[in-house]
Computed example of a mutant assay.
Amino acid sequence: MSAPAPSTTVLRPAHQDDVPLILELVRELAVYERLEHEAVATAADMHAALFGPRPAAEVLVAEHGGQAAGFALFFTSFSTFLGKPGLYLEDLFVRPAYRGLGIGRRLMVELARIALARGYGRFEWSVLDWNAPAIAFYRGLGAQPMDGWTVQRVTGAALQALAGASD
């Protein structure tokens, strides 16, 4: 098998050797989203989450001209209303040097194909409300905002306190 031509983009499932690359891409995404202080995952954390006995997520790596250009990290969700699983996209990131080449669109198309092939009833994700380029990109794919829904999160000390709360 020959190496891909420099102008080609290849999407592939991540493998265990990709953990350092995945962490690097996650940190680049965190910087872009102004959330680098929250990107505290270690290689051991990521390895266990992606390749441990009970993987919690999957990753598609995008390579352009043989170089890492971006990634999509996703996992299975579930809709009680549909009675079916769904695909939840946690992170989509294309490095700035590779934007405008259709890589983000290719990742989204592949995720939609995965969702359909697995019999999932939906494909969803969240986007920061200030990220106008991402919102425009998603609208161009046919995505619709979920008006009336607000993401809620419990983490860190609040999660510990909730778990320790008495009934």
Rank of each mutant, 00 (worst) to 15 (best):
R12V: 05
S2Y: 14
A56H: 11
F74T: 01
E90M: 09
L162F: 12
E38Y: 05
D18F: 10
R95I: 01
V109H: 06
A3H: 05
A136E: 08
G104T: 12
A161Y: 01
R34T: 13
A115S: 12
G66R: 03
S166E: 14
E24V: 02
A68I: 00
L92W: 08
F137N: 12
V19W: 05
S7H: 14
L141S: 07
R27Y: 01
A48N: 06
L25F: 02
L25G: 01
V19F: 02
P133T: 05
G102K: 09
P4N: 11
D45K: 00
R12D: 11
E124R: 02
V10W: 01
I103H: 09
V109Y: 03
I114Y: 02
P85L: 06
G121M: 09
A134F: 02
A44W: 08
G102P: 13
E24K: 06
A158C: 06
Q152Y: 14
L89W: 03
G70N: 02
V109G: 08
T42S: 12
A49H: 15
P133F: 05
D45E: 08
A57F: 08
L25K: 00
G104Q: 03
S166V: 09
G156H: 08
Y98G: 12
A30F: 15
A48I: 00
E58I: 01
E38T: 10
Y120A: 06
V10P: 11
V31F: 10
R118G: 01
A39H: 10
R106A: 15
E124I: 06
F93W: 08
M46A: 14
R34L: 09
L11Q: 04
A143C: 13
E124A: 08
A97Y: 00
L128S: 07
E33M: 08
V154C: 15
A165D: 12
D129K: 09
L25D: 01
L25Q: 02
A5L: 15
V109N: 10
A112D: 06
P13M: 04
A39F: 05
F123I: 05
F71H: 13
N131S: 07
L73K: 06
R106W: 04
A43V: 02
V10G: 06
A41G: 15
K84I: 03
A115F: 01
E124M: 02
A57G: 14
G121R: 00
P20S: 04
T9R: 14
L21N: 00
F81P: 08
L29E: 01
G66K: 03
H15W: 13
F137W: 04
L159M: 15
A115G: 13
G164Q: 15
